[in-house]
């Protein structure tokens, strides 16, 4: 089997498994490359018509390109798009530049609280989220089916292992599950898949004037990285070569020499 087919199959299996097990399911879509890939996988899982709502948590601070892309894509795919926002917090002037408020407080009010409100309102039992294991150390601990308690807390020490595609997806009262169908994909996998499936992604990802965005969210809080990658192919090369560079430094050479000497002392190589 092709590697990308394997990744796709695994994701679609998790999406369908979640749909079969939970009554109220929704997809969280941020218009970024990961959740747009997830959106596409949901289209494939249900033969072109997604049978559950697609939620965008709108802080009001996204890039203009993102709103344009959102509305155009929702129309084109016939999505049941729900735009959720914390109106009260916005009314009180919450934002990244609000005096006396930290960025974390801003995120909490405009993202987490909006999400809590919409989950409660729609009685959502499972929420598809496009996170990947390689994004950040803490996300490596995630499961495909990840329980959240009443206060939205994730207790990562209380999780079962998921060997052999065996998932724990029993619900408990007052809780909901975050379901992570693309957990196993890496950044490079996502770009390869986008390239193969010819998906449209927002232009901000491609380099202009020596810079590009590696991830996108709220405009005031996103910094572009130095890059000359202006095509998907160049982005994949950039990601893979930066990985090589990380591992090709002096320390790695020294470690490799040690490893080789140890293996040779046991008759290998």
């Amino acid at each position: 089997m092709e590697y990308l087919d394997y990744l796709e199959n695994k994701s679609i299996y998790v999406i369908r498994e979640s749909y079969a097990r939970f009554k109220n399911m929704a997809l969280l879509w941020s218009m970024g490359k990961d959740s747009t890939t997830l959106l596409h996988l949901c289209m494939k899982a249900f033969m072109g018509k997604i049978p559950f709502p697609v939620i965008h948590i709108d802080t009001g601070f996204k890039f203009p390109e993102m709103y344009e892309f959102r509305d155009r894509t929702a129309r084109r795919l016939g999505l049941d798009l729900i735009v959720a926002e914390n109106r009260l917090a916005k009314y009180r002037g919450m934002g990244p530049n609000k005096a006396g408020a930290s960025k974390l407080e801003c995120c909490n009010a405009l993202k987490t609280e909006s999400l809590q409100q919409i989950v409660a309102k729609l009685k959502i039992q499972s929420l598809l989220v496009g996170i990947r294991r390689d994004e950040h150390g803490i996300r490596a601990k995630e499961r495909y089916f990840s329980a959240r308690d009443e206060s939205f807390k994730w207790n990562y020490t209380d999780q079962t292992a998921e060997p052999w595609d065996y998932y724990r997806s029993l619900e408990r009262d007052g809780t909901h599950f975050r379901v992570h169908p693309i957990l196993h994909m890496t950044e490079a996998d996502i770009w390869r898949y986008i390239s193969r499936e010819k998906l449209e992604v927002i232009d901000l990802y491609f380099a202009k004037g020596g810079k590009r965005y590696r991830s996108i969210g709220c405009a005031p809080c996103c910094e572009p990285v130095e890059s000359s990658a202006s095509t998907i192919y160049e982005i994949i090369l950039e990601i893979e070569s930066s990985k090589t560079a990380e591992r090709a430094g002096r320390a790695q050479d020294k470690e490799d020499a040690y490893t080789m000497q140890k293996l040779r002392s046991l008759g290998y190589m």
Binding site: Q159, A161, E162
Partner: peptide, 24 residues
Amino acid sequence: RQTGRLCFPQFSDIHVSPFWEGKK
């Protein structure tokens, strides 16, 4: 496969989680 040089697979290169994940 990219450089043609010798390389040594590491624990972080293993594609499947160890069975103790989620346990102490």
